[in-house]
């Protein structure tokens, strides 16, 4: 399974949801679409699924020497952003129905169901109606529904949303299992720490455009000018004042009187230190490489909506 997206655009009424986005995904990869709400992630996913078509550009899915302009249903496992199942039916009935629609025999569907219910510790509740489950458990059932038929490509729109940290870790393990089984996974998320652990490639989007793309290392290299400095002050300093400094792009308060600053591309460290000393005595100065979360925040800060500029 290979997926190549070339310069796709999509507009809804007057809103340009996706602008000239390109990327490619190789078989067996975990690919993450990152970005704030309204960045265009779900619009891209819906085009991949075939629910909508790009206004321009192309999508090419290659699988066993066959080519398609969207992911064929038989190859697809999908967790939509707008999700839900039949609340008055049991877990087993819901999953069996969807598995049979995917073409699985009843016995095959039941054996797959046994496996995944065990993974998510839901075996004892298989006859419970969906409405009796917590939101987190309903989410797990929805994840099982997406993979029960062992699709070649799994697209998960916000798989971590609504889950507590323990269940988020379970989903990380679940996704690693999918990769181990040879499935290609596309996911959209806000949880950078999770994505950092999982994704082979990622695409960071803002306002329908690609902001950063590549592996974590590639993104960090792309952002190598994105230096970060951890500083401590001997007395209280207003973070808003620090943000006004020409050498500083973003400010994140770590603890009392301690801040993580992202430096502007052209700013020198000595210039920055001179400016910081205006606000008080420094007790700590430490340069560090940015993690995905910080790169994300810095990239978003550079791509603020035009109205807010």
């Amino acid at each position: 399974m290979q997926l190549i997206v070339t310069a796709i655009n999509k507009a809804y009424s007057s809103v340009q949801a996706v602008k000239n986005v390109s990327f490619h995904i190789n078989s067996g990869e975990i690919f993450a679409l990152l970005g704030p709400n309204g960045a265009g992630k779900s619009s891209i996913i819906r085009m991949l699924v075939g629910m909508t078509k790009p206004d321009s550009g192309s999508i090419m899915v290659s699988y066993q020497s066959q080519h398609y302009d969207h992911v064929p249903r038989r190859l697809l496992g999908y967790l939509p952003e707008d999700r839900g199942l039949y609340p008055d039916k049991s877990i087993e009935k819901n999953l069996l129905y969807l598995a049979q629609l995917h073409g699985l025999s009843k016995s095959k569907a039941l054996s797959e169901m046994d496996y995944w219910l065990d993974v998510f510790e839901l075996t004892a509740r298989r006859h419970d109606e969906l409405k009796q489950l917590s939101k987190g458990n309903q989410q797990k059932v929805q994840l099982i529904a997406a993979v029960l038929h062992q699709p070649a490509l799994v697209i998960l729109d916000e798989p971590f949303s609504g889950l507590d940290p323990i269940n988020q870790e379970k989903v990380v393990l679940f996704l690693q299992q999918l990769k181990a089984k040879g499935m290609t996974v596309i996911l959209s998320a806000h949880q950078m720490a999770m994505v950092e652990k999982l994704a082979d490639h990622m695409l960071l989007m803002a306002q329908g455009q690609v902001v950063l793309a590549g592996t974590l290392q590639q993104i960090q290299q792309q952002s190598q000018n994105q230096r970060q400095m951890k500083v401590g002050f001997s007395s209280e300093v207003n973070a808003a004042q620090l943000e006004q400094l020409a050498a500083v792009v973003t400010v994140q308060q770590l603890q009392a009187r301690h801040y993580l600053l992202t430096l502007a591309e052209q700013a020198s460290v000595s210039d920055c230190l001179k400016q910081l000393l205006q606000y008080g005595e420094l007790t700590q100065v430490e340069m560090q490489s940015a993690d995905l979360h910080q790169l994300y925040l810095a990239a978003m800060a550079r791509h603020k909506p035009e109205a807010a500029v």
């Binding site: 699924v49 249903r73 697809l76 496992g77 967790l79 952003e81 999700r83 839900g84 199942l85 609340p87």
Partner: peptide
């Protein structure tokens, strides 16, 4: 309203 349609769309036409 139960948001099942998008899930089903990915399975059947």
């Amino acid at each position: 309203q139960q948001r099942v349609t998008e899930q089903l769309y990915a399975i059947v036409t």
